[in-house]
Design a protein around this nucleic acid. Sequence first.
DNA 1: TCGAATAACTAAG
DNA 2: TCTTAGTTATTCG
Length: 250
Amino acid sequence: MDKFVVRKRKNESDSSQNNKKTKSQSSAEITEQKSLNVIFLVNEQLEWREIRRENLNCDYCVLFGKKNADRILEECERCLSYNEGQLAKVQIYGKWHDIPRKQVAHGDEGLAYSFSNNTVPARPWTPFLSAIRDVISQKTGYNFNFVLINRYKDGQDHMGEHRDDEKDLVFGHPIASLSLGQSRDFLFKHADARGKNATRSIETVKILLEHGSLLMMKHPTNVFWYHSLPQRKRLMNVRINMTFRMMVVK
DNA sequence: TCGAATAACTAAG
DNA sequence: TCTTAGTTATTCG
């Protein structure tokens, strides 16, 4: 009873791995959810912005128009739940803290997400999340077996500088980051330009992640650049971010 | 242009 | 992937 069905266009190839376009794409894929009568319709002409620096390789577009992004966000708020208790904590320098946001992972059976002395098992895919995953796969040509969802209730919630843990991820596979709700600044900082031991001066790259947008973080960005979502105390609204990944199956 | 608010950065734990 | 505190830089009315 897969409520969300991805309907492919008849003339479209199924071999999504061969379809690594980054320029404008004209076809409109439609995903529909019959019981709620919700249709996921992506923007027809995707205007990809290519963000390039030394060893930084990202593509950005607004995938869902406002109306559809609004509906997806509403559905997230209606049906997602988040980790609590020990699964919502992180250990740093021996001290446990609550993470300053809400978080949950969904993915293929057996996968888990590890960070700072914590391991969070993936919950099963829901039809809603599978449908979003499949739309992104169709538009980008990459498959994903895991999604980490972070909910930032307002501008106080944030995430510190980090790189995504390489040993859990299939090397070289991009991460797809879907943003919903409050626009937030997203910063990339080069590893050689961090902290007081910085060996080089490299400008921080700031990207505004808008409602309905998709940021593709491609190899080798995550090897060389740290990323963060800094506090923006004047912002009052919720942002939900989904990062679709390909994890190593152990 | 000032001054307050707040963001950025550093250090330590 | 944290917090807090102290300092400096930036933003904004």
